[in-house]
């Protein structure tokens, strides 16, 4: 329960926009245009302790431009040690992220010019120019560098990863006009919106932001190192989004079963033709003449109980 003084403080920090539910320790931020100022005020008013910051993907819906726009709910949990350790949960909605569910992670090597096609053919529109997106956001691309490598450290260049924050303070988090974009063309998969980082207000928020970015794709402008925290560097996609599908695995077991089945049928047919059972060697020769079924792509052998293709099994039980 927030006491009266704290409620006043919160209202003063957030203005009328912050609708406070004092009993539940929750506040809903309806106007995010001046979010950073509000949070700084909150911090100065006593909510000095950062507890948690997390994002929830609400899904995508078509907007006015007839494009799919991402919607996220962000939760920030704070605590005020000097006010009886009062706890406050702030929630606000955030549109936009790096748009592709299967996009190429930006910290990957830019040998392909930053552009890459999606690994599967069933998602043709998934190609995204991440560098262009980031340039549109004003996020310096060095913010996405990898975690420090051994070679860099050993070469004596000890501060290789300790970059200065971007020189121009980035506050254009609602920017969707693509001002910084080289050619002025919009990114192909909808507007990408960078969230201002909270790590300058609460240093601990930096970790949570790294996790949010790698899990949902919301970039944070001004963050000095958005390298992946938990996931592998080669991992593709943002797994905590609703449109995320885990990559299909090759169905080795199904393929094996199928080839065995074909082999058995072939053997039976040949044996029936000849009248005597065939030896294994003869069978191999026959198969070599007819072309081995194992040469086929493993992805085509879906449908067995080992395959991951069944989308209905992925929902809530």
């Amino acid at each position: 329960m927030l006491n009266d003084r704290l409620q006043q403080l919160v209202r003063a920090a957030g203005g009328d926009a912050l609708l406070l539910d004092a009993r539940q320790h929750r506040g809903l931020v309806t106007d995010t245009s001046d979010l950073i100022t509000m949070l700084k005020n909150l911090r100065n008013d006593g909510f000095t302790r950062f507890i948690d910051f997390t994002a929830h993907h609400l899904g995508a819906k078509p907007n006015d431009d007839n494009q799919l726009a991402e919607r996220f709910a962000l939760f920030l949990i704070l605590r005020a040690p000097k006010h009886g350790h009062a706890q406050l949960t702030l929630k606000w909605n955030w549109p936009g992220a790096i748009a592709s569910g299967r996009g190429v992670p930006p910290w990957r090597d830019g040998s392909q010019g930053g552009t890459s096609t999606a690994p599967t053919d069933d998602e043709p529109s998934a190609a995204v120019d991440v560098d262009a997106d980031l340039a549109a956001l004003g996020v310096a691309s060095h913010a996405f560098e990898k975690a420090p490598a051994l070679e860099e450290l050993a070469s004596g260049n000890g501060d290789a990863t300790h970059h200065e924050p971007p020189t121009s303070p980035q506050t254009g988090y609602n920017k969707d006009d693509g001002a910084g974009q080289p050619d002025g063309e919009p990114s192909p998969a909808g507007p990408v919106t960078a969230h201002p980082t909270l790590s300058h207000i609460w240093p601990a928020a930096g970790l949570a932001e790294r996790e949010i970015f790698e899990m949902t794709g919301i970039p944070f402008a001004g963050h000095d190192n958005l390298a992946p925290l938990l996931l592998d560097e080669q991992f593709v996609g943002f797994p905590l989004r609703r449109d995320y599908e885990p990559p299909k695995r090759p169905d080795y077991a199904g393929a094996l079963l199928k080839s065995r089945e074909e082999q058995a049928l072939l053997g039976l047919a040949l044996a029936a033709q000849r009248g005597t059972p065939m030896t294994k060697l003869e069978l191999e020769e026959q198969r070599a003449q007819m072309g081995s079924p194992q040469q086929d792509d493993d992805r085509e052998h879906g449908g067995s109980r080992y395959s991951n293709n069944d989308n209905t099994s992925g929902g809530a039980p």
Partner: peptide, 19 residues
Amino acid sequence: TPEIGYLHRGVEQLCARRS
């Protein structure tokens, strides 16, 4: 510099589909 993630099992993603 800690590097984490070796034990990442995607628990939060799994929990979103379970009771």
